[in-house]
Structure formats: C-alpha cells, structure tokens
Amino acid sequence: MPHLTTYIGLADHSEKTLADSFRAAAEGHAHVADVFHICQMFAEWSEDNREALAPIIQRYGEADDVDEPERLHAAGLAETRKGEVGLLRDLQDLHVLATLVQTTWTVIAQGAQGLRDRDLLEVAQHAGDQTSRQLTWLNTRMKQAAPQALIVAP
C-alpha cells in the first residue's frame, strides 16, 4: 500500500504545516483578538489530528519520499502580512492549506473504507470534520473582513 502510506504522510505533514501556519497567523495578527484566539485553538485541533494519527503511522509506516504527491506539499504561512488586507490574504492562504488537508483526509477515508480499517476510518472522518469547521470559520471570517479591507482600509 505504498500510496496510502504516502497519503498518511501527507496528512501528517500538512496538518503540521497547517498548525504552524495557524500559530503564525495568531502571532502575526495578535491585535485582532478573535483571530489570535481562534487560530491558536485551530493549531491545537490540527495537532490533535496528528496525535490521533500517530498509532496508525506506527502500523502502516509513513512514506514521504514518493515523488508524485510531493508536488502537493503546500508551503506554510512563514510570514504574515500586515493590515486588514494582509489579514484577508493570510486567511485565504490558510483556507487553501486547510482545503489540502481536508481533501487528504477524504482520500485517506476512502482508502480506509476499502481496507475495512475502522480505526483509520474513524481518525480520518473526525479529522476531516474538524478541518471542515476550520474551513467554515475561515470562510465566515473572510466574508466579514472583505468589504472593509477591499474598499476602505488605508
């Protein structure tokens, strides 16, 4: 199952990237109180997902040297931008990243169905649900921030 392990590795890595990026966004926009607190919470959620995946990785192993999905590795949010437009762009980057994470969990859940691996299925479904909640918030927050950022912000 070389490709399943690749995807498990991808899930693990991209959740880590997402967690790091949420933390970077929290720090970079610390004066925006809700972004600061929610992004920290989301970083923990992503880490929880990795923790839940750890026993599975033990079982299947983790491959991160396969060429093809390597191109899917997304860069994290190394540096945050400034101001209201900067926040909007950072939220957008987080959304792209979280979408990658979510589809990775979808793919893994499909594999788990095929393998009849209940443990993996449960991990993938729960993690996918949590990622959906992250995406929903990002979408809500972007909708809120967009008009002001695009039209009025200095």
Binding site: V32, A33, G83, E84, T140, K143, Q144, A146, P147, Q148, V152, A153, P154
Partner: peptide
C-alpha cells in the same frame, strides 16, 4: 447583508485603524 453585522469590538478596531 453580505456578511454578519459588524459587532462593537470590531467597530472600535476599525475606528482604531481609521477605516471607520
């Protein structure tokens, strides 16, 4: 009606930045 209404704390943040 394109987004949730702006709450007080956000209004003051916009005023802080001068965008209000």
């Amino acid at each position: 009606h394109w987004a949730p209404p702006t709450h007080a704390m956000q209004i003051f943040s916009y005023a802080e930045a001068g965008s209000i």
